[in-house]
Amino acid sequence: MSTSLFVATKNEGKVKEFTAFFQERGIEVKSLLDLEEDIDVLEDGDTFEDNAIKKAETIGKKIGQIVISDDSGLEVDALDGRPGVYSARYAGQEKNDAANNAKLLKELEGISDNNRTAQFVCVIAVYIPGQETRTIRGTCKGIIATAPRGNSGFGYDPVFYLPHLKKTMAELSREEKNKLSHRANAMLLLQQQWDKWSL
């Protein structure tokens, strides 16, 4: 089995998370930050799985090694799962967290707390040359608040309320968030499966 793998991201935080896990297994982690060539993959799938798989396979086949990618976003039950794969650009083509949150809250005006249920989703795809690409889905359930609260995190964190903690995701410390987020849950599932998959 390869002693190195590639994480399809330029997000240094994600790279650190994956590095911490794979270092224990003697596997070197590299990312898009290590490539001279800029590989851009159009994420035009209908599901998080579609986008994660496309990114992992496109880059994996190009560089010929194990590639891990992820796609994530917010699904709101009262909106039939929207914004979903369009989470990052829900209010327009330019990524704008405040505008996305404002549009979401506008669409949920008049909806009772009981019907404001939602979940953050993170899908991790693992491409291993010669094998079928696998995916793992991690989630974090909550409800959409009626107004933003908190200054930490990013994206929809200020409006994603966790009833059992009585806080929004943006009111959590980084340590708290990293224990219960959708990405943390997906990473935990990846850890449970990795040794089986990499035989």
Rank of each mutant, 00 (worst) to 15 (best):
K95H: 09
F48W: 01
K95Y: 02
A102F: 03
Q65C: 13
G13A: 08
T3H: 10
R25I: 13
A186Y: 09
E176F: 09
D77L: 10
A118E: 00
T117C: 02
R116T: 07
S152G: 15
E28M: 14
M169D: 08
L180C: 15
I68L: 15
I39D: 02
T9W: 07
D44R: 03
V7T: 01
V29W: 07
V126F: 01
E171V: 11
Q23L: 14
K55I: 08
S181Q: 11
N96W: 02
L172M: 12
A20I: 11
E12P: 05
S4P: 04
I144C: 12
D70S: 04
A147C: 11
G73T: 10
E43R: 06
H182Y: 09
D44L: 05
T168H: 02
A78M: 03
V159F: 01
T133F: 04
V123R: 00
A8H: 00
W194N: 04
A8P: 10
A99R: 09
Y90K: 06
T19F: 05
S2P: 15
G92D: 01
A186L: 13
F154L: 14
I111D: 05
K106M: 12
K61Y: 03
A145D: 15
S173N: 06
F6T: 05
S72W: 06
F120V: 07
E24V: 11
G150K: 14
I68D: 00
D71E: 04
K166G: 02
N51W: 02
L172K: 07
Y86Q: 02
L108P: 07
E37T: 14
H182A: 12
A78F: 02
G45Y: 00
S152W: 08
Q192N: 14
K103L: 15
A52F: 09
S198E: 02
D80T: 02
E12I: 10
N185C: 13
F22Y: 06
P129F: 08
T19G: 04
I27H: 03
F48K: 06
G81L: 04
K177V: 14
I59N: 01
S4G: 01
K196H: 08
L188Y: 09
E43N: 06
F48Q: 06
Y161L: 08
K106G: 14
D195R: 14
A186K: 07
